[in-house]
Write a protein that binds this DNA or RNA. Sequence first.
DNA 1: GAAATACGCAAGTTTATGGTTGCGCTTTTC
DNA 2: GAAAAGCGCAACCATAAACTTGCGTATTTC
Lengths: 111, 111
Amino acid sequence: MSLTSEPALAKAAPVFAALGDETRLTIVGRLAADGPLSIARLTDGTGVTRQAITKHLEVLAGAGLVHGARHGREHIWTLETGQLSDARRYLELVSQRWDDALDSLRRFVED
Amino acid sequence: MSLTSEPALAKAAPVFAALGDETRLTIVGRLAADGPLSIARLTDGTGVTRQAITKHLEVLAGAGLVHGARHGREHIWTLETGQLSDARRYLELVSQRWDDALDSLRRFVED
DNA sequence: GAAATACGCAAGTTTATGGTTGCGCTTTTC
DNA sequence: GAAAAGCGCAACCATAAACTTGCGTATTTC
């Protein structure tokens, strides 16, 4: 993976963007802790409207972080950990590259 | 760490937000791979203006992901891996919570 | 010391984002 | 079967985000 020009970047950015909002991060946290929840449940506690939560869920879904399905009168949303793992691996790789770069630099200075 | 109401969330969101842009992710990737670079160098290859890159660097700096220092006529920017690790750990924790939730759900169904 | 390089500051534009309110429809609940 | 709960759709608003252009200044380079 190249970290820059590769498509991995184009995939990772939207995921990070989706996680880059406090309300959405709260939603992800609650889904992770409590399991699948309805929109009404997810709205509880947040200071915002149900519509706002709905929009956030759509953003998260667009990034592949959650998926929803209607059951009766409620819409249940579930966490999707695939993209989450990819994002985590991306960060690991960046850290790794950085360590390598520091190593090269150190060796260069020592010469 | 609680994933929702704790301050960990308020810290993590800005970091993810900073990473949630293709141009900025490219910058982080290049810094990780090549080591510290000047604004002019970081601008090369990207389709945007030097000013745009400067703004992106300020956003990254605001999230604690990079720091810069002027050397002569150039401004050299360096990656900061601390926040990166924190973000990674946050994602790990979310995945962990999710697995736990699934486990509880499975046990509940089996009863 | 003139030309080129590397920036910073400021103003301006456009589009996206996060949020709201209002209304109507379906599904439960009592 | 009326009331309540849970949503979806659409319009609208304010602010922030991503970039640009223009210009002035310090630092190298030749």
